[in-house]
Simulated scan of single mutants.
Amino acid sequence: MKNTYNVLFLCNRNSARSIMAESLLNRMGEGHFKAWSAGARPSGVVNPHALQLLREHDLPSQALHSKHWSEFETPQAPVFDFIITLCDKVSGEARPDWPGHGVSAHWSIEDPAEVFGDEAACREAVHHAFRLLTHRIGIFLSLPFSHFDHMALHEEVTRVGSERPG
């Protein structure tokens, strides 16, 4: 197994799903994974319900911010081993050609920011996305990365995106 894998989570606004995925993987990956997040059309703010949920689970949240994926097009940017889209809007969109030819996969998760209604409905949408991410990241971390070639790894990481908590 490689010492550290770099992972970029992408979604449209980079306000909830990708932000939570970044925080979760940085904690759950125990130093073997370093995660970042970005968006195609960043909102500029992190969803307050997502931030609150991260704090409730004692997950890193202080350095998180909504940003455009162009921030990772500089020569100083990390080389990504994995690029995972969480948003259907972004999955088919043309993206920068980041160096490294990382494994790309899509894990469709509904955008909690598109849920309108009372506070309870908005919080529940964030909690639902958080549960899916926690489950999928747990499965992702259990993959025997060194046993797969690039194509097989792509298939396995893509398969993780269809997993749902039992």
Rank of each mutant, 00 (worst) to 15 (best):
E71M: 06
L8G: 00
M1W: 01
D118N: 12
L64M: 05
Q76S: 03
A113M: 13
H150M: 12
W36Q: 08
D118W: 08
Q62R: 15
Q52P: 00
L53E: 07
H154M: 07
D97W: 00
W36R: 09
G29R: 12
F148I: 05
A40R: 09
F140N: 05
L24G: 12
H32M: 03
N47S: 03
V103W: 13
F145P: 02
P42N: 12
L64K: 03
P112R: 14
H32W: 00
S142W: 13
V7Y: 02
R164Q: 10
P112Y: 11
F80Q: 06
T85K: 08
F82S: 08
V79E: 03
H128C: 06
P48S: 06
A94Q: 12
E163M: 13
A94H: 12
A21Y: 04
G29I: 10
D88M: 15
R123Q: 08
F148V: 06
V126Y: 04
Q62C: 11
S104P: 09
D88C: 10
W107P: 02
S104K: 11
A121Y: 04
S66A: 09
R13L: 03
R123T: 06
A105T: 13
A121M: 11
T158Y: 00
N14G: 06
E119H: 11
C11Y: 00
S108A: 15
D118Q: 07
S43C: 11
P60L: 06
A21Q: 04
V45A: 07
G92S: 14
A121H: 04
E110F: 12
S61W: 11
L10Y: 05
G100E: 03
L153C: 05
S108L: 12
R27Y: 07
G161D: 09
F130L: 05
S70H: 10
I84C: 04
V79L: 02
N12E: 08
A50C: 05
